[in-house]
Amino acid sequence: MSRKIIINGRFLIHRVTGVERYAREIVNELDKIAESIKIEMAIPPEVTEIPKYKNIKIVRIGKLNNRLWEHLSLPLYVKRSNAISLNLCNVAPLLSPGIVCIHDVKIKATPQYFSKKFLIWYNLLFSNATLRAKKIITVSEFSKNEIIKYYHVNPSKIQVVPNAWQHYDNVGYDDNAFEKYNLIKGKYYFSMCSLEPNKNFRWIAEVARKNPQMEFAVAGSINETVFADGLGFKCPDNMELLGYVTDEEAKSLMRNCISFIFPTFYEGFGIPPLEAISAGAQSIIVSDTEIMHEIFGDNVNYIDPNNYEMDITKFFNITNEGKKQLLNKYSWEKSAKVLYEFLCTLR
């Protein structure tokens, strides 16, 4: 690789959700093997917690903040440095998108769930990136095929660099969560994710309504400025929305639930079920969709995300061999090596 890579560090100003987790973990692992290539991370002025890297140099640039920094300060710095930007969280500078990781194209596949303002902005970003970016990264073969389908991108332009779960190894358990959220170990079904309508928490609500003797707990929060109709349903009395929970609380709730439920309509990957397996969840329930089969194979329970009549008490537990197979399949270290080799081919 002859040109310097400059990582877009704007993700450091945000609370850690799926795409921010991906960026943080990939960069952590990339730093361990980046000794022989030129990589920097540019960060905006408002970043307060700066990670410590061994090989990746961090530079604070510009006077603008947030989106203006990303679309003006960053590309100007990249141009002056004769470098290529690496953007790991869907968004890339409009002027010079460089290398962009597009995690999914749900704005195309499920546009009905998003506000018009959100759709206009992300359609602009993705159309620009798929047309003008030097290369595109995504997190699964399914997502790669979706990008090709909706944006007609040449497959050779796209590199798959998957998500993983090992960040959960650094998280402890907090059993105080059971008293805090009034839950009894082994007596509840659990789900955790950002409460986007495409995550299909309506399925949990409807199943809970039909099974009033069971308890259902859902962790996460809804951003009503992004999603068109909020949750779009009312929760029954036996379904509790816990709001934001800490990683330690989530890990305990995963380990001690009857089943971890992930009834999503659409994903580019889907980290939470992998996190739940690593935390010790005995049973996993996911949607019967192409991406879930790609990631989890025959080791989990599949449900029709539109069918509320299923008897969830009949689902099987994951075998030890199944857990081992799933957890060995993905790692941040492996993904960083794929990305590193990919970066080394750039000219």
Rank of each mutant, 00 (worst) to 15 (best):
P155I: 11
I261R: 05
S252W: 00
Y188T: 08
P162N: 03
A276Y: 10
F227H: 13
A279R: 08
R209Y: 04
E206R: 11
D174A: 00
V160E: 03
L241S: 07
S140P: 11
Y181T: 05
G243W: 12
P155A: 13
I184P: 00
E267N: 01
N200W: 05
Y168I: 15
E267D: 08
A250P: 06
G243F: 14
Y189A: 10
W165S: 12
L274P: 07
F262M: 01
A279W: 04
G186K: 12
F260P: 05
V161G: 02
G220M: 11
V161S: 04
S259C: 14
Y189C: 13
S194G: 09
N163I: 01
M192E: 09
Y168H: 00
F216C: 09
D237L: 11
C193E: 13
V171N: 10
D229R: 13
P197V: 13
Q159P: 00
I147N: 00
F142Q: 05
A205W: 05
V171Q: 07
S191R: 06
F142G: 07
I258D: 05
E248Y: 06
F201H: 15
G268E: 01
E240M: 07
M254V: 00
N198I: 05
P155M: 10
S143Y: 02
A276L: 11
R202G: 01
L242K: 09
W203D: 04
L241H: 06
G172V: 06
N154S: 14
Y189V: 08
N182Y: 10
G243R: 10
V218Y: 11
D169A: 08
N170R: 13
L242N: 03
R255E: 12
V153N: 06
N211D: 06
G270E: 03
P212A: 10
T225Y: 09
A250K: 14
Y181F: 15
A250N: 09
S278L: 13
I261P: 05
D169F: 08
C235M: 10
F265L: 15
F233V: 08
V218I: 15
G268M: 02
K251F: 13
G186Q: 07
Q213F: 03
K149G: 02
F201M: 15
Y168N: 09
V245F: 06
Q166I: 00
L274N: 05
E141P: 01
S283F: 05
I258L: 14
L242S: 03
F190C: 06
I158T: 01
E240T: 14
I222A: 12
I284G: 12
A217Y: 02
G243P: 14
L183Q: 10
G230K: 12
I271A: 04
F190V: 11
K180W: 00
D247V: 04
I158D: 01
T264Q: 07
A279S: 15
G172R: 13
I222S: 13
I204P: 03
L183I: 11
T246Q: 06
F265H: 09
S259D: 12
L241A: 11
I148P: 04
G268V: 04
F142W: 09
F201T: 11
K180C: 00
K180V: 05
E141V: 12
Y181W: 15
M192C: 14
S143C: 06
E146V: 05
N145K: 15
S252F: 04
N200D: 09
L195K: 07
S221V: 15
A279N: 04
R209N: 12
T225R: 13
A208N: 08
V171L: 07
I277G: 07
I147P: 00
Y181N: 00
S143A: 15
N154E: 14
V207A: 03
E141Q: 14
